[in-house]
């Protein structure tokens, strides 16, 4: 099967399955949230019919209709961009997410790029200095830090760096006094507030990039074309950049996809701990108050973000390395 077609099928299947999962979890499970919600309204003195209309205003839900029609209607609403109204905030979920998405995309993309560059640089350096004390200690640190959860690092950072030492702000996306817009204060404040979440991500994710960059570099260093380049007397800088670096970095791009998913998954913790107004914060708020429409909206949006960025990363990778397109059947 064509490689691109396979990626597109994966993209569509993933979205279909995620939407179906939210549909079935919220409506079908015993003691499901919709029933609970109706009961809550009835306890407030509504009749069953009134409670039903109230719930229907929140999520297009009609319990008397057959399942497949409900499912079909659910899809119709989602395709129109209608994710229902938030149960607790009484605002359309799509509107809330519209505010939250840019912050999350901002944090995740900056973190991904920084941890990638830090990891690659350290990896190349460790490969050149392999066996040294630097190599041993940074490799050990990388493999340990990679396994420590974001929320642990985040908690330690927020307690010491933000609250105790007051080096960084502990919450929000920008300072209270600045007016959003294209001005120096605002941009500076945004970057300052993003610093700790980004550092948290970098500390917990650079290890993966670093370790694989190191092993790739070591194996490329043994290739004959590197020896030949040396023999031709090319400057070291050129060898390490164009001969070694470019070939060693290529396999890393396959891991981009997995990494994006992992980062979006961690957004729930990082944004919650730093009270950053992105999707992750809203998801954890929604969990706390059991706001189902907001919860499923956040989940679907995170999934779509991951799926689409995966797809783009894969396409870019197939541009970079033509072997992928031709060998993968």
């Amino acid at each position: 099967m064509n490689w691109v077609v396979r990626r597109i099928i994966n993209l569509i299947l993933t979205i279909i399955i995620s939407v179906s999962v939210t549909f079935f979890l919220v409506r079908i499970m015993p003691g499901n949230p919709v029933d609970t919600l109706i009961q809550q309204y009835m306890m407030q003195g509504y009749s069953y019919k009134e409670a039903l209309t109230a719930v229907r205003a929140l999520i297009s839900y009609m319990p008397n209709e057959p399942l497949h029609i409900q499912y079909f209607n659910y899809w119709k609403a989602i395709l129109r961009g209608d994710l229902g109204r938030s149960i607790t905030l009484a605002t359309p979920v799509s509107q809330i997410l519209g505010f939250a998405v840019p912050w999350t995309v901002f944090i995740v993309s900056i973190s991904l790029l920084s941890s990638f560059s830090v990891g690659v640089l350290l990896g190349v350096y460790a490969a050149y200095k392999r066996g040294s004390l630097f190599d041993h200690s940074i490799s050990l640190f990388a493999s340990i830090s990679r396994s420590i959860p974001h929320y642990i690092i985040g908690v330690v950072f927020v307690v010491f760096l933000a609250v105790q030492l007051r080096l960084f702000p502990a919450y929000g996306a920008y300072g209270r006094g600045v007016t959003p817009g294209f001005n120096i204060q605002f941009i500076g404040s945004v970057l300052y507030h993003a610093a700790l979440p980004v550092i948290t991500y970098v500390v917990t994710t650079f290890g993966g990039w670093m370790l694989s960059m190191k092993s790739n570099t070591i194996s490329v260093l043994g290739e004959y074309y590197v020896v030949a380049a040396r023999a031709r007397g090319l400057p070291n800088r050129r060898i390490s950049l164009t001969y070694v670096g470019r070939n060693a970095i290529l396999p890393l791009f396959t891991r981009f996809a997995i990494s994006i998913g992992y980062m979006f998954g961690g957004v729930v913790f990082v944004e919650t701990i730093f009270s950053y107004p992105g999707i992750g914060s809203y998801l954890s708020y929604a969990i706390g108050v059991r706001d189902w429409t907001l919860m499923t909206g956040c989940f679907l949006l995170i999934t779509i973000a991951v799926v689409v960025s995966n797809f783009v990363a894969d396409l870019l990778y197939s541009r970079l390395d033509p072997r992928i397109r031709f060998t993968a059947k």
């Binding site: 993209l11 998913g261 992992y262 979006f264 999934t303 991951v306």
Partner: peptide, 8 residues
């Protein structure tokens, strides 16, 4: 593998 596992 694509669905972000923690949110799921």
């Amino acid at each position: 593998l694509t669905i972000p596992s923690f949110p799921l």
